[in-house]
Design a protein around this nucleic acid. Structure first.
Lengths: 234, 234
DNA sequence: TCAAAAGTGTTACAACTACACCCATGA
DNA sequence: TCATGGGTGTAGTTGTAACACTTTTGA
């Protein structure tokens, strides 16, 4: 039994995060410049330490680079092709993160060479990071259609038009605002505030915030659902 | 750069597969007995080799243990808590597999001590394998409601009542057969055969098979969809 | 007063749900 | 002939999609 363990080769284990941010108009990914090559950018990443788990490591790395805690972070996929990292064999666990751009726009660039890139205008990426970003975008689209995770990309208070713009950006389309707001509000997940947004439009749009207890409840139950007869989709 | 690599600790990388099988009545998981403890069972697993990727390793291990190839295999989640394996630190990539019990029922028991267990009657499991199974069940339920992966658990030819029984088992419920068959057939994913099933019922049920090209097409496009205005679910 | 974005309602159509009876066959 | 499981149809309800006008207010 023990001999079986000793016969095995160990590998380095890395974490890489695809960090999505929404600036009000466009959906962006945060990339950092690696010292070596001029035009090659990379995902934010780091190494797994002996004393931490995977999720903990992903959180730590995100915190070190952005100063943010309590960020939406979800394990995406693990990449382990033998030759994915030319230096040495590395298995990388990719996470995707949703952050509110306004929360930390400044902090990042200070210590690291980091920049937001539009999804539609990405530079060449290191190793298989391009593949990771592709998968993350697909996962975001897939997931946002069924789970109310969009809020994670917005400030605590936001307006319906802002939320619609976010969804327009995620799906690169233009939803009908009447149907959109009806659908969103029918979830009873949003609490309308007295306050109106100033400066953006003449009229001003009402702010909303997420009903957190309800939202968290929902997030939990999503993975335990039983469809009734006909909620089977295909 | 290179020094950065050298400073890192490597870990063992394992693969564990949650193998689901349907016997016509119940949904089962395939477990193997580990030599050490009497009543502890374990998922099928193995080590990542230097010359193979993760999916390749999962396939190899599944093949070695069951003799099956071309099995539905999907990466589920990676587990890496520091103390999950008491012998040495190990990161495990879990896959879940859907197989047709009839295909290999015999082969497995020969070389390994392997057995099918009902989902509702699982023995104590090694390490965090119980957690892996839980997650796999949730993922199966979640996924089967939206993607036609149920076929993977059935023989090539199957009847609508068989398929309904499978879904009943997955969701531990009892779907309405009229609505169920309407829904399934409306996908145009099934081809009705001339042949009828004998021996199970007096009348006999028609066999169907999957329209493979359509099915594969669909599987691909699922991850690239854009919902129209109102397909957002929540 | 007008430009720009916010907010809202209706109607046709499609999909889902609940429900009950007849059919084919082997014993 | 009858017991067993297979197969199908309909009507009420709910949800989705498409569409246009009025409101507010700062410049």
């Amino acid at each position: 039994m023990i001999e079986q363990y000793q016969a095995q080769k160990p590998y380095l284990v890395a974490l890489d995060s695809i960090i999505f941010g929404f600036d009000g108009e466009q959906l962006n990914v945060l990339l950092v410049k690696r010292g070596i090559e001029e035009d090659t950018w990379s995902l934010m990443g780091g190494w797994l330490r002996p004393d931490e788990g995977l999720a903990g490591a992903a959180e730590r790395i995100l915190f070190e680079l952005t100063g943010l805690t309590n960020v939406y972070l979800e394990q995406l996929h693990t990449f382990g092709e033998p030759d994915r990292d030319p230096v040495t064999r590395t298995v990388s666990v990719a996470y995707f993160a949703l952050v509110n751009v306004a929360d930390f726009d400044s902090k990042i660039s200070e210590t690291y060479q980091a920049r937001w890139f539009s999804l539609y205008d990405l530079p060449p990426l290191l190793f298989d990071h391009g593949e990771m970003v592709d998968l993350a975008i697909r996962q975001l689209r897939y997931k946002a259609a069924q789970h109310p995770i969009g809020f994670e990309l917005l400030p605590e208070k936001f307006t319906i038009p802002q939320l619609k713009k976010l969804y327009d950006a995620i799906y690169d389309t233009d939803f009908d605002k009447r149907n959109f707001s009806r659908k969103i509000l029918s979830t009873n997940l949003l609490i309308k505030l007295e306050e109106k947004q100033k400066g953006v439009s003449r009229r001003g749009a009402y702010f909303y915030q997420v009903d957190l207890p309800k939202y968290q409840q929902l997030t939990k139950s999503f993975l335990n659902f039983v469809p009734h007869s006909e909620t089977i989709f295909w």
